[in-house]
Structures are given as C-alpha cells and as structure tokens.
Amino acid sequence: MADEPLLRVRDLSVHFPTPDGLVRSVDGLSFDVRAGEILGVVGESGSGKSVAGKAILGLHEPGQSVTTGEIRYAGRQVVGAAEEELRQLRGSEIAMIFQDPLSSLHPYFTIGDQLSEAYRVHNRVSRKAARARAVEMLTLVGIPAAARSYGAYPHEFSGGMRQRAMIAMALICDPGLLIADEPTTALDVTVQAQILQLIWDLSQEFGSAVVLITHDLGVVAETCDRVVVMYAGRCLEQADVVDLFERPMSPYTWGLLGSIPRIDETRGDLAPIAGQPPSLIDLPPGCSFEPRCGFAFGSCTSERPELSAAGSEDHLARCHLPVPDRQEIWRTQIAPAL
C-alpha cells in the first residue's frame, strides 16, 4: 500500500480501571480506513466496537480511561492530542451518529438549532447562513418540509426522521469520515433499509468514508466494502466483504455465520457458538476465543495469536490453525452446513 490511508489505527487499547479490575474493552486493535470506503466493524455486545468508535473521536474522558496506541487521521495523531486539537477535528473532519437518535438529540433544542450549532462551531458564518445550510442538509436527507421541520423538537419526529436529522447534522461540515455506531438498531426493518440506503448514497455524494459499527452481519454484507470482526476487544478477522462471506478464516466468524437464522432460506438446526464471551477483566492468556472454539488445540490456550495474512494479503485473521487447514475446514465442514 503506497499511500497513507485516511484513518490508520494501530495497536489501539482502551482500558477502564474499575474497582473489580482493569476492563480491557479494546486491546490491541489495528485497522485502516481508506478514503471514501465503508468499513464495517461487527461484533457482539462487549466486543469493544463502540468503545473503539468513540476512541477515534477522542471521546473517552482521560480521567476515567486509558487510551494507548495510534489513531492517525489524515496524518494527525488523535491519541494523546490536546483537547483543542481534538475539538477542531470533531464534527468538521470526523463526525459520529449513534444508536438511539432520540436520546442523542437534545430534547430542549429544536432540530434546526442543533444543526446550525454544529455548522457554526466550525465555520464563521452568520446565523442566517447557518440556517440556510441546515435547511439544505435536512432536505438532502429526505426530511419533508425542511424549512418547517427546522423549528421542530426531536420528540415531534419519528425514529427514522430523527436518525435522518442526526445524519444531516453529522454531515453538515462535510467531514471526511463518518462513524455510525449501530445507526439502525433502534429502527424498524423497513426504516433501517431507508437509513442504510441514505448513508450509502450520501457517502457516495460527499465522498466521506464511513465506519459502520453493527452487530448485524446482514447489514455488513449489504452495505460495507470491508469488514473488521471484533471479539472481546480484539480484531479476529478483517477482509474484503466478499472474502469474509465466501472464505471466512476465523472460527469465530464461522460461529457467527452458523448462528444466524436466514430470511432467504429455511435452515435446519442452527450451529451456535457454545458458552459465553469471556470477562474483559480476566481475558484468557491465549486466544480470547479459545474457550468457545471447537477447533482449539495446544498453543491456543497459552499463546496469543497475531493478526496474519490468511489467503490473501488483504485478508487477515487471528488464529493459530494453519491457513490450509482452515480453508479445508470451511470448505468441508462449515460451508455445507450453512
């Protein structure tokens, strides 16, 4: 890879000291986001995907957490940056939207005021110009009668409309990167389809890269270009979306695929992953997935596997099993049962 990616995350760790011990929410996470691409970060609750997303914006309070490693956005280091430097990055270069648009919008300010504020904090413009820009953005995300909706309060909108307003607010300064943290989880499936379509359309139009954090592999398959699969604070696999679904190289990804009931076909029994995710305070010394893995052997318990190429240069996985063995297991045991 010749040129520097838009966002470069290397060995990122976010730890929270608690009375029970150090919670390693994110532990040695590395990935790149290239300009204009949609990267899916998929994982179950507690996998650290949302914590990582917030870390990209430097949103974790320094007093309550310890963030180490490297997050480099367009050449600028985020981890350890001064508050003022982070502030100028937030909203103008990197924007974020969240799972629950109702609680994420201030209940006592109008939608329009919240949008204008986001624009004016990074652009020296008059109130009138900011208002015009906000109305333009509301129209762009498909809010009917945008000029009138400008004065509406969040509770007067439906869930889908609120998320549209959040997207409008996030993109109002034309950021290079949008972090969408479970943006459709709180929405109905027909509205989810609209919102995903909107995010996809706008990322094309604005040329923004998107980090789409989700628990839903279906959302990943239909929206993303590349995927990072997270488990217990670590990345277990990352690949091009086609590679991930056609040749997954991590037993955890196999387990996820085996767990999902399908809308497009009737499956027999599901093949769930046994047991439960480990405690983030007391992670296994070796591979974090080893206690639940059906293919674990000797070194898995003691030695932490590194993220290494599996099949192609762009396809990385964290697993001790030799690559040919994994390819064989996928082809003969896993894929036929799906």
């Binding site: 989810q192 609209q194 959302v219 239909e222 399908r262």
Partner: peptide
C-alpha cells in the same frame, strides 16, 4: 428490507 448475511448480489429491494 431484511439484510441477508451473504455476498451481495443484485437484489431487487422494495424500499418503502
């Protein structure tokens, strides 16, 4: 509208 966890192929989606 339900996203399917498999390699995307052209699917005719009825967007409400």
């Amino acid at each position: 509208a339900v996203p399917v966890p498999k390699v995307p192929e052209a699917r005719k989606r009825v967007l409400l």
